[in-house]
């Protein structure tokens, strides 16, 4: 167990309840162990960043935590219990490449609202609010698939937030966006966090990490190399893998 988050995170977050826990989580594919014995705790109201070099298993870990993939071993707990369908409805995810339904911008939002049982006038009101929040009101009737990358990611984020999730997973949501789009996405994430949404985000961007993170889980070769408050991990990394990453060096050792 490498669950060292507890004693390093800011006081206000440390006192909040555990929202999601991973216990000795592993995932194997093609005879290779891609995630190896990961244990961690995501606390309510926190902003946790999952960082690490390419191929470290960040996106895979995010999918395991969200329940999109079944772990080979270990378990994920939602508020201390096995996740059920209410847990799934309380979580949402924005993917690196946004998945747009073959519908208009508005219909994409309406679909998500319908799946949360929101209909009629309330649906129209909430969809209008989401469009406004994402700056997409003028594009409401446009097909979602012809939007620019930044607009698609804003729509994906608005759609993910429209069901008022407790926990939002973000897999490098700004990796291919320009600075203006990145800034808008970050504002939306900040606003969601201010409303109490817990954030778990994969990012490679050091600047974004400093703007958006409280805690860091640093992965290397599918294992947790280091966890702790953002400032500590980025300024004074204890693990060789994290130190190499912050210094821009390639760290090829397959073990910690």
């Amino acid at each position: 167990m490498r669950d060292t988050v507890m004693d390093m995170i800011p006081a206000q977050v440390a006192t909040s309840a555990a929202l999601l826990e991973a216990r000795n989580l592993s995932f194997e594919a093609g005879g290779k162990r891609l995630i190896d014995g990961v244990s961690l705790t995501i606390r309510e109201g926190s902003r946790t960043l999952i960082m690490g070099a390419n191929g470290a298993g960040k996106s895979l870990l995010l999918r395991l935590l969200h329940g999109l993939l079944p772990p080979s071993a270990g378990q994920v707990l939602w508020r201390g219990a096995t996740p059920d369908h209410t847990a799934r409805r309380a979580q949402s995810m924005v993917f690196q490449r946004p998945v747009m339904l073959r519908r208009s911008v508005l219909a994409n939002l309406n679909f998500a609202l319908s799946m949360h049982g929101v209909r009629g006038a309330q649906r129209a009101t909430e969809a209008g609010r989401a469009l406004d929040m994402a700056g997409l009101t003028d594009l409401a009737r446009h097909p979602a698939r012809v939007l620019s990358g930044g607009e698609q990611q804003r729509l994906a984020l608005a759609r993910a937030l429209i069901g008022q999730p407790h926990l939002l997973f973000l897999d490098e949501p700004t990796s291919s966006l320009d600075p203006a789009s990145t800034q808008m996405i970050e504002s939306l994430i900040d606003a969601a966090h201010a409303r109490g949404v817990t954030i778990v985000m994969v990012t490679h961007d050091m600047g974004q990490a400093r703007r958006m993170g409280d805690e860091v889980i640093f992965l290397h070769a599918g294992q947790v190399a280091e966890t702790g408050p953002l400032d500590q991990v980025l300024r004074h990394p204890r693990s060789e893998a994290a130190r190499a990453w912050t210094e821009g060096r390639l760290y090829t050792n397959s073990t910690l």
């Binding site: 329940g67 999109l68 369908h85 409805r89 339904l101 998500a112």
Partner: peptide, 23 residues
């Protein structure tokens, strides 16, 4: 294309089929 998004949204089988046929 849609599988992960649908799984993330926790869609039931009926909703998946309806959405796929519509799109």
């Amino acid at each position: 294309e849609y599988a992960e998004q649908f799984a993330s949204m926790g869609l039931r089988a009926y909703d998946r089929i309806a959405a796929l046929l519509w799109d």
